[in-house]
Structures are given as C-alpha cells and as structure tokens.
Design a protein around this nucleic acid. Structure first.
Lengths: 222, 222
DNA sequence: CACATCCGTTAGAACGTCTAACTGAGGTTA
DNA sequence: TAACCTCAGTTAGACGTTCTAACGGATGTG
C-alpha cells in the first residue's frame, strides 16, 4: 500500500513537472509550439516517455486549461475572503483587481483560457464549474447594492437560465445581468490588453479597467 | 505589358484561391491545422508550389489577418454610409449590429483577428490603420451626442495619445473614451460568444450585446 | 527562332505527434 | 530468497508538417 502510494507520488510529481515545463514553453513561444519532445528533453527523458503520463498533446493542453480555471477561481475566492468585511463596492473592486492581476501576471495562461479555443477541446463539467466560480464571487456584493432593473428581457432569461444552477443560491435576474456584464467588460479590456492591442494607443489600460468597474458599480446602485 | 499583366492576373487569382482555401480550412479545424500541403492539394498542386506565392505559412496567416481587418473595416464603413441620415443613436446601433454580424458570420476569422495572437506576427502599419478604422466610424455619431466627462484621467490620456492620429480629426477625450469603451464592450461580448462560453448559460447573447450598446448610448447622453 | 523568366514538380532535411516492441528497474507475492 | 509482474523509460519507425534545393517544362520577350 505504502509502496503503491510512493509510486503514485512520484508519478504525480513528474506530471506536475511536465505541466510546469509546458507552461514555460507556452509562455515563451505560444501554445502552438508546445512540443512533447521538448518537454521530455527538459525533464531529462525522451519524447515518447510522456505518453505514460498524458494520452497526447491535446490532453496535456486541456489539463493546463482546466488547471488554469481552478487557479483563477481560487485566486478570486481568496481575494473575496480577504475583503469579506468591507463595503460591497470595495469588495467588487478588490475582486476585479485580483482578476486582472492574475491575467497580467500570466498572460499566456489567460489566453489559454479565453483566447482562441483549441480545436478538440470540450470543457469537462468540473471545469465549467470552476469557470463560473470566479464569476459567482461577484454576485454576492453585487446583490448587496440595491440593483435596479434595466434590461428586463435579458434579466428574465438569466434568472430562468442560471438561477438554480447551484442548488441554493437563486440569484435574481438583475444581479445575474450585472455579473455577466461585469465579466464581459473585464474580459473585453483584459483580452485586448493582453494581446497588445492597446500598445500603440498611448493610454494606461488600468485606467480603462477601473473606469469600467466603477461604471458597473454606479449603474448597479442606479 | 499586356502579357505581363496577364501573368500578374492569374498569379493574383491563385493567391486569392489559396487564401480562400486557407480560410475554409481554418473554419473547419482551427488556425493550428492550417496546412500548406492541404491547400496545395485543394488547388490541384503540390505543397512546395505555394512557396512561389507566399514566403511561408506565417506570411499566409498574417495576410489573412490583414485582409480580415480591412474587410471588417469596409463592412463597418458601408454600414455607416448606409445610415448616414439617421439619428446618432440609430447610427451607433447600426454600426454595432454590422460589427456583430460580421463576427458571427465568420467566427473563425474574428478569432484570427482578436483571439490568441500568432507568435511571430507583428501588424504592419496599414493593418493597424484598418484596425482602427472600424473603430473610428463610431466616433462621429458619438460626438453628436452631448457627451459628459466621467473619467478625466483616462479621457486626458486618450485625448493626447490618440487625438491627432489622423491629421484632421482631433476628437475630444470624452468621445475617444466612449469609442474605446464601446470597442472593449463589444469585443467582450463577441469574443466570449464566438468561443462558446455562453452556450451552457441559457440566455441569448444578442440581448446582452444590445443592452451593452444601449447602455453606452445612454451613458453618452448623460 | 533563341532566350529568359516563371511555375510546378520531385527529393530530402529537420521536426512534430504518436505507436510498437523491447529493456530494465521497482514492488509484490509464493 | 526467488519468481513474477507491473510500470517507466528506451529505440525504431510510420506519417504529416514546413521549408530548401535542384530540376523540367511552359509562357512570354527580344
């Protein structure tokens, strides 16, 4: 038993090393040039050896994506607990800041999650759960702001489509609209920033991001 | 002369055929699996023959990107002239609609422009011009709405950074902020929609998009 | 007609994923 | 201890990719 566990441990360890090497390579030259052979070389073994650990290149990539969603969600959750006592607006700002810092600290990883999807990839259930988890942290403080209805059709669809996703919550449509809107606005700024589209435009994207967050908060209180 | 022109014509024609085939392949299986050999086969010739027309895979890709920016800009410009007489709000809605329809009609192409950037790609000058051209069409109707200042720091940076980009215009900072904000909001919705992130969420992205546009217009009039 | 230019071919190097068969070490069991 | 089995890693090789190089043939030019 204990020996079997030992094998499992070193196996998991080399899996992690391989994933770390993969992230380094993606950071260096983009997801397209991720090479199992090169990863093997970095770990001190040959290419085909990695097929003992991953079914193939695609599985390694999907695992990196899945890990990324969980890591991002954990980061946002940590930020949420860190500012638990403050005002709703302050909490929203803190969550948005954590979201942005995660993306800018590892832009390649953010693009892996939200950039062009890899062709054969279909998100497993627990990954979608993690993906929405980072979004869900925003709902609580948003709900505390006295939200006003502005787009009834959309809000109704969201209320029926997303409400009882997790058993208990049951968020109202206005809060869900604010959450989704916040998500798309953050992503709009972040993705263009990470891809360098703002580079020649001579302004600080952080200001744009903050402006979007503040607008969202203002529109929530009415 | 006339013979030389003839050669040029068929050369340009096979170039276009190659690009069309490339777009088909990208639409079918993503940008990663774009293969010069396969394109050649589709045109009835061998792979290496294409090197008479393109320096390599990367050049073909960058040309597709460049073409895409121009096509998108042309589409938005056409929409602008089509609604020249109407109210500013109506014009903005029409431009946004054209922008969205272009993206949804050819999602792979939208992702080619705004998804994960290809590693070796650096946009040539005329491409950046085309990229900003689709955005610039929004500025005129936005300026006609009596725009109120909301984020002075950002607006000042934009005014000094973007104002005299093209010789004459000289847009004020508030208008530029609305333009950039509109861009990031449209992109935020469109990119997530095109990548299928809304698929399991049970709402119609068109409503979200319209809501964003209407919010932008409302916030512009103050 | 002779010549030059250009287009497409085949051959091959280098690199990628991935499969198959083999070797050797680790851990389990009689 | 001895025998066995599982698993990690190796090499060999099929196949596809980009891309270069050398060659043939067609097209257009003097």
């Amino acid at each position: 038993m204990e020996n079997a566990t030992r094998r499992e441990r070193i196996r998991a360890q080399t899996r992690d090393e391989a994933k770390a090497a993969a992230l380094r390579q993606i950071a260096a030259a983009g997801p397209q040039s991720l090479s199992l052979n090169a990863i093997g070389k970095e770990l001190g073994m040959t290419g085909p050896a990695l097929y003992r650990y991953f079914a193939g290149r695609d599985e390694l990539l999907t695992e990196l994506i899945s890990d990324g969603y969980h890591d991002l969600a954990d980061t946002v959750s940590a930020a949420a607990t860190a500012v638990a006592g403050k005002s709703p607006a302050e909490r929203i700002r803190a969550l948005a800041r954590a979201y942005r810092e995660w993306a800018l600290a590892q832009p390649h990883r953010y693009l892996l999650l939200f950039g062009t999807p890899v062709p054969g990839y279909a998100a497993p259930a627990h990954t979608i759960a993690a993906a929405t988890r980072s979004l869900r942290e925003f709902l609580e403080p948003l709900a505390e702001l006295a939200a006003v209805a502005r787009h009834p059709d959309l809000e109704n669809q969201l209320a029926t489509g997303l409400a009882d996703r997790d058993g208990k919550a049951g968020w109202n449509g206005v809060v869900l609209r604010l959450g989704v809107t916040g998500w798309t606005r953050m992503h709009g700024v972040l993705s263009l920033e990470v891809e360098g589209h703002f580079e020649t435009m001579g302004f600080n994207p952080a200001l744009l991001y903050e402006a979007e967050i503040n607008d969202l908060i203002e529109s929530a209180v009415g």
